[in-house]
């Protein structure tokens, strides 16, 4: 990379051709990522696709059936509730904890780092069954609340990493002391100084958690099952009935995830545009 850049700086008009192995790597990666998605999209509108390379015909029939499915809106709503509640709980737990550890309890940071890898080490089935057994009393037993708790644990690393990196990058300790010396208390420091400065980390954490939780199947199926049916549950149900409708569901799911991502990024960029506007106003 460094080599091609230096060549360009000598003659900006001359484009450097990438090596053939570079083209191969990039193409392979793109194919690997895109083929399943494109196939899913195509399959959701294909009439029959088992004897030919391209489908024999196209139809929107499966989308009609998907939207008409009795649980469609309820599962969509449940999935959104689950994802947003998880984001909210992880933010409330993670942001103050990470801030506290970075400013007051620096020695505990390695411990927290290790703790935040643990969810990856516990098989989800084990986590789900253990939680179901321990919290087997009402109102928690097999409730959506218990599910949110479980999903928070499982998605915690996705929130922790970006937030922790962001706090590390802004030198929270010095900013806190500066704020305090100007008369701000801990809440004012968090709200006025720390959170605005780590917003990009909070947003990317929220995005990761959203996309992970929106597609969550194992915990939901084992902890609440049919009582609180989410979108992935409905999708899996339909793979057994009709593959094309399931594909249509997948496409809807992708689309919603993308829309929400764009929404979160847009909300996040509002703070930045305010900043750029003030700069331009000079």
């Amino acid at each position: 990379m460094a080599k091609s850049r230096s060549t360009q700086s000598r003659d900006p008009n001359k484009r450097v051709r990438p090596a053939s192995w570079q083209i191969f790597m990039v193409s392979f990666f793109l194919l690997y990522m895109l083929v399943p998605i494109i196939s899913t999209y195509v399959f959701s509108v294909a009439t029959r696709w088992d004897r030919t390379i391209l489908p024999e015909g196209y139809t929107l029939e499966f989308y009609k059936r998907a939207f008409a499915a009795s649980y469609f809106t309820i599962t969509l709503r449940n999935s959104l509730i689950l994802s947003l509640a998880t984001i909210l709980v992880s933010l409330l737990v993670i942001v103050p904890t990470v801030y506290w550890v970075h400013t007051r309890l620096v020695g505990a940071k390695p411990l927290l780092d290790i703790l935040m890898i643990l969810p990856f080490g516990i098989p989800m089935v084990v986590l789900a069954l253990a939680l179901v057994q321990v919290y087997n009393f009402p109102p928690l037993a097999r409730s959506p609340t218990l599910l949110i708790g479980a999903v928070v644990i499982y998605s915690m690393p996705f929130m922790y990493r970006p937030v922790s990196n962001a706090i590390q990058a802004v030198d929270a300790q010095v900013l806190t002391e500066a704020g305090q010396s100007l008369g701000a208390n801990v809440f004012q420091v968090l709200y006025r100084i720390i959170i605005p400065n780590i917003l990009p980390g909070i947003l990317s954490g929220s995005l990761l958690v959203f996309s992970t939780v929106f597609a969550e199947y194992t915990l939901t199926s084992l902890i609440v099952g049919a009582k609180f049916k989410t979108f992935p549950l409905l999708l899996v149900e339909f793979t057994r009935i009709n593959g094309n409708v399931a594909s249509a569901f997948s496409v809807i799911s992708f689309t919603i995830a993308w829309l929400v991502s764009i929404l979160i990024l847009w909300v996040g960029s509002m703070g930045n545009t305010k900043r750029t506007k003030t700069i331009r106003a000079r």
Partner: peptide
């Protein structure tokens, strides 16, 4: 510290 009424300037500036 926030009620001491003591101002501080840091080596790393620490501007927000």
């Amino acid at each position: 510290p926030n009620r001491r009424d003591i101002g501080m300037v840091f080596q790393s500036y620490a501007l927000f």
